[in-house]
Computed example of a mutant assay.
Amino acid sequence: MREPVELRRQRILSVVESRGAVKVSVLAAELDVSVVTVRRDVEELARVGRLRRGHGVARPIRDPVPPSAVPVPRGEEAAEDAGAVALVVPERHSYLYETLHGARSVLEDSGIRIALHIAPPSPGAERPLVERALADGARGLLIAPRWPSARSEELDYGWLADVGVPTVLMERRPRPGSALHALDSVCSDHWYGTHLAVDHLVSLGHRRIVLAARDDSPTARSIRAAFAEIAAARPEVEDWTVVLSSPEAAAEPRGSAPAADGRAALDLAALLRERGATGAVLHGDVDALMLVQRLAESGVEVPRDCSVVAYDDVVAALGSTPLTAVAPPKAEIGRAAAELLLRRLSAAFGDGGPVRRTELLPTLEVRGSAQGPPLPRN
């Protein structure tokens, strides 16, 4: 049952009168309502003269004791003096940059300074960045490690579990039972996203489907595993296969060029002919656009000859053939992660309650790159 407005406003007054100035975001976390709701309540209470309103802060009509006698709690007015929140994301990763901007909007609205750290692609690059941020006084951490392979992920478990400040993983789901299993995380449900892609193609009549996917991130590994599980379980799917979407899409390649590690560019047109496939799921967006271009060069038109669903939806809409795409809620992941971190940082919330492993569902953006399979040729 929703709490009556007057009771909620009385609780706000009680908190403000007992503690002095309190940030609106802290009140929202403690009352478990939105910041917009609390802001509206504070404005109304200020209008009738029951409290004073500052920039993002609610104050009592009279300070209960001289301000100098009361230390300001961390996470309230001293937010900017209490240290920044470190935000660590991989270099050249447009997908996670959208997540970054979602987190930034929440933290800046709460008056918390952000220290952004960009991790280069070298193995173990995140650890020294986090250690430097902690040495500079960071009081919280939002991080999306690159984790190109399962091995690189496991190597980070130990130190990341012991950073000593509230930490939330973004778009990462650690292995069950690992040292990070009990760490707060916010992630897209990539199984569901893969289901959307396969279900869309199946609903259009496709029975032979190819997944051309990356294999150099936790997201890529989740999509590959989900596709194999879903395709194998769908009785309508007669044939399916998983291939690498580009020579650079594998984890920790042995060489910088395709010729150096023995991998040639994927000939998707030949693979479609070999498997008799009429539908393809392509991860990620840039690889998808390049593969569609190569299909056109080979005389295979999308969607006339092959229907395509891309995965990521960062640039899928910008191709000469705008691609239907699975769209993970990238910015929302960042916002949810930042809101969860604020709970941990709030002195009023204690330890922030139980660990949360939050999953948000992707959506399917239909743009016309998929239709019914071509009619058999005589």
Rank of each mutant, 00 (worst) to 15 (best):
H200I: 07
L201H: 02
S203T: 13
L204R: 04
G205P: 08
H206I: 08
H206E: 09
R207A: 14
R207D: 14
R208A: 12
V210S: 00
A212F: 03
A213S: 15
S217L: 07
S217G: 13
R221W: 13
R224E: 12
A225V: 05
A226K: 00
A226V: 07
A226T: 02
F227E: 06
A228E: 15
E229I: 01
A231N: 02
R234C: 10
R234M: 13
P235T: 04
E238L: 14
W240E: 02
T241G: 08
V243N: 01
V243E: 12
S245Q: 04
S246P: 04
S246F: 06
P247R: 00
E248K: 11
E248M: 12
A249D: 09
E252D: 15
E252C: 08
R254S: 14
R254A: 15
G255R: 02
S256G: 11
S256I: 05
S256L: 13
A257N: 06
A257R: 15
R263Q: 14
A264D: 14
A269Q: 02
A269N: 00
A269M: 03
A269L: 03
A270D: 13
L272V: 10
R273Y: 01
R275K: 13
G279F: 11
A280F: 07
A280G: 04
V281F: 01
H283V: 09
V286M: 10
D287T: 12
M290K: 05
M290N: 11
L291N: 02
L291F: 08
Q293G: 11
R294K: 10
R294L: 11
R294N: 11
L295F: 07
L295C: 03
A296T: 12
E297D: 15
E301I: 08
V302A: 00
V302Y: 01
D305W: 02
C306N: 03
S307Y: 00
V308Y: 04
V308E: 09
A310Q: 01
Y311L: 07
D312S: 14
D312V: 08
D313K: 04
V314T: 15
V314F: 06
V314Y: 01
V314H: 07
A316R: 05
